[in-house]
Amino acid sequence: MAKENAVEKEKEMTQEGFDPKILGFFCHWCCYAAADSAGVSRYQYPPNVRVIRVMCTGRIDARFVVEAFRCGADGVFTGG
């Protein structure tokens, strides 16, 4: 990522009303299941996470995280 971009990003992230794009890697057995139950119970949370289901957080290669940031994610959430 170019340096200007990084500076730009930092500015954006400190602003109010920052609307981050977060990529989540959820373990099928626990976090993904918990996210489902949150839905069943109709808990409300901000709509910023996009989820990739994996069978275990052990599946998450460091390359996935780097790639997510390179592709413009503001945060990566791993749940397992």
Binding site: A38, V40, R42, Q44, Y45, P47
Partner: peptide, 8 residues
């Protein structure tokens, strides 16, 4: 479960 229900 992970969209409509939680961002009603």
């Amino acid at each position: 479960d992970q969209c409509a229900w939680v961002h009603a």
